[in-house]
């Protein structure tokens, strides 16, 4: 499904509904991942779509809408975290290390939607490379949204085993994917 850019520019409901259905949840889970607040995350992505609506007339026929949405969402989240940090300075300073970390981590996340897409391909490939038993548990949990308990009863193993396999899967993925970390993180190793 391609984006109906002309429809977006002229403010057609159908065109907006299409991009909304296609990208809202994806951006929402990005926001949730770094903002850690469902209601807030929804609002931040909502705001990104509103911004797109407000700026729709400035779009060109070759504008990259998904990248625009991605950039605005990321910017909104960073801005939100920065504001939270300022607020925390006054009465909740125990939150500051976490808020600082979140900003750094999100800043290090993909720079554009293209980066996200290529990372997704890489993750996919890495998942396929996991050992069979681990991959199966991981996929059931991540793709079918089954709980550890449900998976355990399906496979007739203990929930602890399921938990251990998921942890292993994530560990393997992390090791496998470490080459794709942004340079900024690798720099730490040289500077230490």
């Amino acid at each position: 499904m391609d984006i109906d850019l002309q429809g977006v520019i002229s403010g057609k409901k159908r065109a907006f509904e299409d991009i909304y259905n296609k990208y809202f949840d994806l951006l929402f889970y990005l926001a949730v991942g770094y903002v850690n607040d469902y209601t807030r995350a929804e609002d931040l992505v909502h705001d990104a779509f509103i911004k797109l609506w407000e700026r729709r007339k400035d779009l060109y026929s070759d504008s990259n809408v998904k990248n625009l949405l991605y950039t605005i969402t990321k910017h909104n989240c960073l801005n939100h975290l920065r504001q939270q940090e300022i607020i925390a300075k006054n009465c909740r300073d125990y939150l500051i290390p976490e808020l600082k970390y979140r900003q750094e981590a999100l800043d290090n996340f993909a720079n554009s939607f293209e980066d996200v897409e290529s990372l997704l391909v890489i993750v996919e490939r890495a998942i396929d490379n996991l050992p069979e038993d681990i991959r199966m548990v991981f996929k059931m949990n991540r793709f079918e949204n089954l709980t550890y308990r449900e998976i355990a009863s399906k496979l007739d193993v203990s929930p602890k085993t399921v938990e251990a396999r998921i942890s292993k899967a994530l560990k393997l993925l992390r090791v496998e994917l470490k080459d794709y970390l942004p340079l900024a993180q690798l720099m730490f190793w040289f500077l230490r």
């Binding site: 994806l26 750094e104 981590a105």
Partner: peptide, 24 residues
């Protein structure tokens, strides 16, 4: 910073995965 970059990578995978496979 070592632990931090490990966690950052971990979170990245976690978030990418959610972006791709989760939906409301």
């Amino acid at each position: 910073s070592n632990l931090k970059s490990e966690f950052m990578a971990f979170q990245k995978i976690w978030v990418l995965n959610n972006m791709k496979y989760r939906s409301r």
